[in-house]
Design a protein around this nucleic acid. Structure first.
Lengths: 161, 161
DNA sequence: GCCATAATACTCGGATAAGTTGTGTCCGAGTAGGCTAGG
DNA sequence: CCTAGCCTACTCGGACACAACTTATCCGAGTATTATGGC
């Protein structure tokens, strides 16, 4: 049960996009080089984000991605689900129906085991939904020195066109 | 991000083992046929459970598995981690270190994004740790008619030796 | 009837293989802005 | 100087390849119970 690398990548990309000044865009190439990840594959993940309505990309030169919503309206869960899909981690195959001794009895309701597993997943989702991109960008300003932030902003703008 | 089928299988197996009368054992074959899953592959999962000290197997005919601890001392988390491994779902590759503008600055502490993701995983783990096998067996008695329970018990005992 | 031996039924572990998924690359089509050439 | 057309840089989408993992399957070794056979 491992999350894809793409999840880590797009979360970092989104926090960068969230810290971007109003109206700015960043190309896939800039984001990929900035994070040291393969550009073409990152592109796939960003497309998924675009399909989910989290970012929006524009074509042509000086094109690129920007957040489609304010950073405080995008939760971690939104981003994770956009890349990882909305499916559950635990899939119930109803193997209790394979019990050869059921006779006429057909089990109704949800399998107890699935219910427990899904309850845990709901807790996971709740936690992710409670954190927004804006929370991270704010925390980032404490972690990273001012000059690094400025150099990074300049670096990104330089290859944004 | 999907859990293996083995997780579902062993959770069902464990609840069956938990409902077993004192001193009873069940062979891999009985458990596999009862749930309609491939015996050899289920065997691998049960071995993992044995390595984790959740069940213990005995050799020879009339051998098989039984819980190594009382059913109220085995949590869902124990079982899931035994099969799925203790590793985290989100792995942090510290791609923030790839930022070409860091200069002398070396980021310390844990990546903010990883911290959020792991916090969510902790919530998932807490939830799974709060449910024990005994909770499910108790609930099962409400879901499944008495006669089905008895027939199943008999069926399992018949191929237990 | 008793004991030694063989047969049986299970666990354990390794080897192997097919199918699926994650990861990464490549290329063509479409689009928007900048550049150049001709008026 | 202005405009039309070309060029460039980007996104988008599909096709493809490789590696890793999941999901099995098979077989041999070890072990404990049961069955058998010889005394």
């Amino acid at each position: 049960m491992e999350l894809r690398n793409q999840v880590e990548w797009v979360l970092h990309c989104c926090t960068v996009l969230a810290a971007l000044p109003e109206g700015g865009r960043l190309s896939t190439r800039a984001l990929a080089e900035f994070h040291g990840v393969p550009k073409e594959y990152l592109s796939k993940a960003l497309q998924a984000l675009a399909r989910a309505g989290i970012v929006e990309g524009t074509l042509g030169p000086s094109g690129g991605y920007r957040l489609a919503r304010p950073a405080d309206e995008v939760s971690f869960l939104d981003v994770v689900e956009a890349v990882e899909g909305p499916g559950r981690a635990f899939v119930c195959n109803e193997i209790r129906r394979n019990n050869p001794c059921l006779g006429q009895f057909r089990p109704g309701g949800k399998c107890r085991i699935a219910r427990v597993m899904w309850q845990a997943e709901d807790a996971w989702r709740r936690e992710l939904a409670s954190v927004r991109l804006s929370d991270v960008t704010r925390a980032l300003e404490d972690d990273v020195p001012q000059d690094v932030m400025e150099r990074s902003a300049q670096w990104l703008v330089d290859r944004a066109g």
